[in-house]
């Protein structure tokens, strides 16, 4: 389906403005997004609105998407890497009804990608915008509960407390045990929380060609990482940042380089590992890659 056909074919719901939000709200969000881009990693406060789903379901990401999206965009929505989970399906359907834009499950076809907790495996391009749904935007929140204090800490770039936290990890467990939501420094100035993506994805933020926008609805903050911006995970010289490794490859597409989900198969320890990024996995399978549990395909059956 081409973009134009899809746009014309989809009936949007009458009585709502394009992309649900009213124009004044969009302007307010747009101004916040521009300031967020101009000050990489800094959390810009904004007047978050009620959305027709509860806080915690991606209202921040949705408001950013609604302010950015245009009728020529092709939208992809993922939840933990998958296009077909509840959160992804309901948000994609919401924007289809509110804008009539074309949607896709293919990372390479999308111009706008809203994500919950994953960065697509396929490298993004300059023509794409990635919108993250963020539950807690403040990286220092569990270390310092007072907003007035964390504001000051950001103003002074005073992040020693986070280093202490990572050091305590090492002294307790022998390694940095933070596995997701790994703290990063953006452009050498602001400590940033990259939403609960696994630390496997953290290096993908660094010098990414795409613009990355972060929206936290309940906490009323928007922040951004512009393209080609330095994003450095916090670590120590003797305990450098490391990403996860798995004992196996993807059981369906045999990928060695993607983030794997563990699926329990029975109560006797049977398990399989599969790609969390469904589009990446199906594209690899279509290209002929086979994991040890891949379904037997036609050419094999014919023999």
């Amino acid at each position: 389906m081409t973009i134009q056909q899809s746009y014309a074919a989809t009936a949007t719901v009458a009585g709502y403005n394009f992309a649900f939000l009213d124009e004044q709200t969009k302007r307010m969000i747009r101004r916040a997004i521009l300031k967020a881009v101009a000050i990489p990693g800094y959390q810009v406060p904004f007047g978050s609105r009620e959305m027709p789903l509860p806080y915690g379901w991606g209202t921040g990401g949705m408001q950013v998407t609604a302010a950015v999206i245009g009728k020529n965009d092709v939208l992809k929505v993922i939840d933990q890497g998958a296009d077909d989970t509840t959160n992804a399906v309901s948000i994609r359907r919401f924007f289809t009804r509110m804008t009539g834009v074309a949607t896709t499950e293919k990372t390479r076809e999308a111009t706008l990608i809203q994500t919950r907790h994953r960065v697509p495996e396929m490298p993004l391009t300059e023509n794409q915008i990635l919108v993250y749904q963020v539950p807690i935007p403040e990286p220092l929140r569990w270390l310092e509960p007072r907003e007035s204090e964390t504001r000051k800490m950001h103003a002074l770039s005073e992040y020693g407390v986070m280093h202490v936290k990572l050091y305590e990890d090492i002294s307790r467990h022998g390694h940095i045990s933070t596995a997701y939501d790994y703290p990063v420094m953006v452009n050498g100035r602001y400590l940033m929380r990259c939403s609960p993506i696994p630390k496997f994805d953290t290096p993908k933020l660094h010098m990414n060609a795409a613009l990355q926008l972060f929206g936290a609805g309940r906490e009323k903050r928007i922040y951004a990482v512009p393209p080609y911006t330095e994003v450095k995970p916090l670590d120590f010289e003797d305990h450098p940042f490391q990403i996860e490794r798995w004992p196996e490859t993807c059981a369906l597409c045999n990928a060695e380089d993607s983030f794997l989900d563990e699926v329990i198969l029975d109560d006797r320890g049977g398990r399989m590992f599969v790609c969390s990024d469904t589009d990446y996995c199906s594209e690899r399978q279509a290209a002929g890659h086979r994991g040890r549990m891949a379904a037997p395909y036609k050419e094999e059956a014919a023999q």
Partner: peptide
């Protein structure tokens, strides 16, 4: 639509 298109250029 025009303010959306203009915003994308500004962004």
């Amino acid at each position: 639509q025009q303010s959306q298109a203009s915003f994308r250029a500004l962004l």
